[in-house]
């Protein structure tokens, strides 16, 4: 636990993660410049580059991650310099000619580089991203500690950029508890004109 604490603190201090969390609630919330979503209840959000992390109990217990437009050549998730020696160099990158199976592959490679074990995706199918056409798949992985986690992701490539909503949580109790709520929120995703 102390190890967790020291490493987390150092990672945050060095990564300039002094952003912290802010409250998001109400009818509609903007995500980046291109998207918006209707929160169900009050959430805590943290903004990291083109990612937004929404959580109720803290990212270790559930993460609803919005990728608000990754452009060609960009990684799926930003890599703080405290966590990676050469932040951008070996990152798996999005390319604007990717097909949905390649996006699922990108997520697996990204999670694996961040330290997840046995990351797998399944059930990749066409699905609505809000009201637009997109794709959806399920995720399973084991966290560094050995805690088994589950999730799903919805995505869409629009105007050569990748937009995603990725929900992950420990399999025990947390994933199921908020899955319905997250599903309903994702239905409310809209692209701004």
């Amino acid at each position: 636990m102390k190890r967790f604490l020291i490493l987390a603190t150092v990672a945050l201090a060095l990564g300039g993660c002094a952003n912290g969390f802010s409250l998001v609630a109400g009818e509609r919330a903007k995500i980046g410049t291109a998207m918006s979503v209707a929160p169900e209840g009050a959430w805590n959000r943290q903004i990291l580059g083109n990612n937004e992390i929404w959580t109720l109990d803290g990212p270790a217990l559930q993460t609803l991650r919005f990728v608000a437009g990754a452009a060609d050549g960009e990684p799926l998730m930003p890599r703080p310099s405290a966590t990676f020696n050469e932040p951008q160099k070996d990152a798996p990158k999005f390319h604007d000619n990717m097909t949905p199976p390649e996006v699922a592959e990108l997520l697996v490679a990204t999670f694996t580089q961040f330290g997840a074990n046995n990351t797998e995706t399944k059930g990749l199918k066409p699905a609505k991203f809000g009201v637009d056409e997109g794709f959806r798949f399920e995720i399973a992985f084991t966290a560094r500690s050995g805690l088994e986690c589950q999730g799903f992701a919805v995505g869409r490539i629009k105007d050569k950029k990748l937009y995603m909503a990725i929900y992950t949580a420990p399999k025990l109790f947390f994933y199921e508890r908020d899955r319905g709520r997250v599903d309903r929120m994702i239905e409310t995703l809209r692209f701004e004109a």
């Binding site: 190890r3 967790f4 490493l7 987390a8 150092v10 990672a11 405290a82 966590t83 990676f84 020696n85 961040f114 330290g115 560094r144």
Partner: peptide, 9 residues
């Protein structure tokens, strides 16, 4: 091969 945290490279 079991990273103790993100900083172990």
């Amino acid at each position: 091969g079991i990273p103790a945290g993100p900083l172990v490279t």
